[in-house]
Nucleic acid binder design. Sequence first.
DNA 1: ATTGGGACCTGCTCGC
DNA 2: TGCGAGCAGGTCCCAA
Length: 277
Amino acid sequence: MPELPEVETIRWELGKKILNKRIFRVEIFPDSRGIRFLGSYSPADFQQKLTGRTIKDVRRRGKYLLFSFDSESILAIHLGMTGKLLYRPADTPADKFVRMKFVLSNGYEIRFADPRKFGKMFIISPTDDKLMESLGPEPLSPSFTVDYLQKVLSRHRKKIKEVLLDQKIIAGIGNIYSDEILFRAKIHPERSACSLLQEEIFLLFSAMQEILRAAIVARGTTAGDRQYLNTTGKPGKFQYRLQVYQRRGQECLRCGRVIVSKKFGGRSGYFCPQCQV
DNA sequence: ATTGGGACCTGCTCGC
DNA sequence: TGCGAGCAGGTCCCAA
């Protein structure tokens, strides 16, 4: 699924292309049922709110993309697992699984394609923004420090893997990067968060910074069945640098022991049973 | 309060 | 070759 680095890549690409472009038309397709229009907006309200608006800013918060306009409304998009935002010239052949599209004034359109329909799209107001407020801090922001991480981990007894995945604690990390971060920090995913020693917390913090930054530079990870693609339909490059995710049965690149996987609350986690302690 | 598990979705892989 | 079962997982929701 698109996690922080993938969403950041999309934000960066779109930001260069659609600023000050006007939304000429909003098309919502019949099979867009799965797009959850949260809040009190119906699809028709949604179209009305956005049609004719000029895009003024594209930001990211956690795994959400936030579009600002020449109005009070903010469009928030969560890509779920399989969501893509494809930026195409309007005369380009149709893409599969497009649930919604924004036709822009410059002859291009943004196509929201989402085979598994886990994506969400909704309108929020800058002043009443409960969802964004409920998100934890951005792990790459200057205010996210080792001290902060230590404080937050000491408050939770649950597994460190679960803590990394909890968007209310830290925003933007999903299954792929939580595995990679824990592997790099040599921490077992089932360790209780509050049991981590100061040294380990420092390693965890460093691993988080390094991996997320490297993944952004690599323009994200296209792995597994998620088939993340950027706005031009191209894959990322970080999958070539994965150390542990989806390497079950293969040798650990650090110690040679066989990588194992285990279910953590419905999702699979990969780790080395020898060097992650 | 915290924690855990199921539901939502559907394309894809695997085994018989 | 065909078909059904199972898997993938972010977030919401409910129960213990």
